[in-house]
């Protein structure tokens, strides 16, 4: 369980004034949960993820993973970036095995586990390719496999599908649901697509900017019905899905208007 307790972050603006990026955000990610953070740009969702990953210290508040305070990056929290940060001088399999190398796992064992993970994301044939030979969607799948390799307790995903075309994106969403249901990892996933958020998450938090805070929370069931029936289209066109999508859209939009008016 990852617990965020009244986390606040102030950045320094260019003129030195503090900017309130995250305002007393509290959040619990239970084991096996898929939590999606939705919001417009500037709502603090990436700030929150960076703090969870340990890239960013908090101004106040705390983050703990299974009772241990988070104070810096670590292998128990895997990160998938918006733009894959693969190393071009290593093959796909070597990239996936990087965390295992850091942990001191032997070469043969590394290779074996990397190929297993590549099979999980459907890229076993590309083990010996260079990352720059792959398409954007494939590179993100390598990024997911790499983040899973050290067997982290939680996967933090920062708009991983934001740069993909919409068809690839839908395929990636279904793949991610498979990965999630097979590995049972907790996932914290950031997006600004309402449909993606509703489709993927077991829990949804909606965030709003200036200062970044959580304005709404929902428990969702769509991902489970997809995992059961394997029919994404039926899920996304169901009356419940459409109704909730419009409700969330109203919150996001209303919030945007209020956010601007407050300035």
């Amino acid at each position: 369980m990852l617990r965020v307790d009244k986390a606040s972050v102030y950045f320094a603006a260019r003129d030195g004034r503090p900017v309130h990026a995250l305002d007393r955000v509290s959040l619990e990610i239970p084991d096996g949960a898929f939590v999606v953070a939705l919001g417009t740009s500037g709502c603090g969702k990436s700030t929150l993820l960076n703090a969870m990953a340990g890239f960013l210290p908090l101004s106040s508040g705390s983050i703990t993973l299974n009772g241990h305070a988070v104070d810096g990056p670590g292998a128990e929290r895997g990160v998938v970036f918006q733009k894959d940060a693969l190393l071009p001088w290593k093959t796909v399999a070597e990239n996936v095995a990087l965390g295992l190398k850091f942990a001191g796992v032997g070469r043969k064992e590394r290779r074996k586990r990397a190929v297993e993970l590549l099979r999980l994301v459907g890229l076993q044939e590309f083990a010996n390719s260079a990352p720059y030979e792959l398409s954007g969607g494939m590179r993100q799948r390598v990024g997911i496999a790499r983040a899973l390799a050290p067997d982290p307790a939680i996967l933090l995903m920062d708009e991983p599908f934001g740069a993909l075309d919409s068809m690839t994106r839908e395929a990636m969403q279904e793949l991610l649901v498979d990965v999630w249901s097979r590995t049972g990892k907790q996932i914290f996933f950031i997006t600004h697509s309402i449909e993606e958020a509703l489709f993927l998450g077991t829990h949804l938090i909606v965030m709003s900017p200036r200062p970044g805070r959580i304005v709404a929370r929902f428990d969702l069931d769509f991902v489970r019905s997809f995992a059961r029936d394997r029919d994404a289209r039926a899920v996304k066109t169901s009356p419940e899905f459409v109704e909730l999508r419009e409700r969330v859209r109203a919150i996001v939009h209303q919030d945007e208007v209020y956010g601007r008016a407050a300035e």
């Binding site: 990953a53 733009k83 940060a85 190398k101 050290p150």
Partner: peptide, 29 residues
């Protein structure tokens, strides 16, 4: 060297030395 690359290595459990050997040096090559 991009901060993202460094952060990726750190979140995979790299030590300072491993970060230098496997990320910084090849990036600077």
């Amino acid at each position: 060297v991009s901060l993202e690359r460094v952060n990726a290595a750190l979140s995979l459990g790299a030590t300072r030395f491993q970060l230098m050997r496997d990320v910084v040096l090849p990036s600077a090559l």
